[in-house]
Amino acid sequence: MTSRTNTQESLTLAFEILKRIPRHRKITAPELHTQLQEIGIERSIRTIQRNLEMLSENFELDRDTRSKPYGYSWRKMSNGLSANYLTTQESLLLSLAEQYLKLILPTKILSSLESYFDEARYNLEHNPANTRAKSWRNKIRVVSETIPLLAPQMDPEVLSLISEALYEDRLITVEYYNAEHKRHTATVMPLGLAQQGVRLYLVCRFDGFDNERTLAIHRIKKVVVSTFNFKRPQDFTLEKYDTDGRFGFGEGDSCFIEFLITKKAGFHLLETPLSKDQIIEECEGHYKISATVIDSLQLERWIRGFGSDITLLSKIRDHNVCSTV
């Protein structure tokens, strides 16, 4: 049984190494060592080096010995490992995934996919048959509904540690500063990551509390990942946290609003309603609209953004009139 287990482990290691050897650049044993660690395979660098020596003798691998650490890649005319061959469609998908998901993919998964990202980029850039797929990336774009902002500076190590702890459900101790530039240190449960525009937020529970809070990743200056795991709260889902308007600076409370808005400013609400219960009455030069929405600072900013084009008639929260104009 032990011999069979050792053989399976050796084959698994060899296969994982082959999957990560690129075609169009060199990869070294230390790089492979890091990538394998990210997916939970713990082997010494010497073991990986021995495997690379063996694999280069039995597969169509180039071994660059001009400097240390040695670099390995598939030979130019080689078909490589069939599992490592990417079609045009797969190359395009991976290219878009790297572009739009790199901040919200777990760091371990992102690292383990690096050789595939490299392969996808090369396929799209250098294969004439992929010209149309390459041009597709320039034909689509996620656009902002507000004035475009530059992304805040984030510490890559901080994001990596938070991603690791979130993936493994481990407690973390964070040092951060708030909007008033006051520094704090706290132990928290990382519960979710959310990207809002150019900002990335950590949803978490502070030690000793039973409610969720949001921390801007760029304001976190230091992270220490605990060896202790935690049990995720059963009453929490990131989807509900979002639909409750918590990223819009609300507390999850609904309100019923009624307002007049000019037809020019409000036409888009006929196509994209505020809610499923939205009611629109057409008046001369205006629409009278009523809907149940999440009460939040974001709602207030949205209303103020229309200036003189909107007149708030009433806002009812918890069956009480909060404001009437």
Rank of each mutant, 00 (worst) to 15 (best):
F230V: 07
D210A: 12
V203C: 03
R199S: 12
H218I: 05
A179E: 14
L191I: 09
S254P: 12
G208R: 05
S226A: 10
R246Y: 05
T214D: 00
Y201N: 04
G252H: 08
L215M: 11
E212T: 13
L200R: 02
R219Y: 01
S254W: 10
E239W: 08
T187G: 03
V224Q: 13
N211K: 15
E180Q: 14
Y201R: 03
G250C: 07
G250E: 05
E251Y: 09
I220L: 02
F256S: 13
E251L: 10
L202F: 05
K222T: 11
F230D: 06
K222C: 06
Y177I: 08
R205T: 07
A216C: 06
A194H: 12
Y241C: 03
T187W: 03
R219Q: 03
P190E: 02
H181S: 08
F249H: 11
H181V: 03
E239R: 14
K231T: 13
G252Y: 06
L191Y: 02
L200T: 06
F230I: 09
Q196H: 09
N178W: 07
D207M: 13
R213M: 11
R219N: 02
V203L: 06
H184V: 07
Q196Y: 08
L200Q: 03
A186D: 07
D235T: 12
E180K: 15
G245K: 00
K240S: 07
R183K: 12
T214Q: 01
F228N: 15
G197V: 06
Y241W: 03
G192L: 03
H181I: 04
R205H: 08
S254H: 11
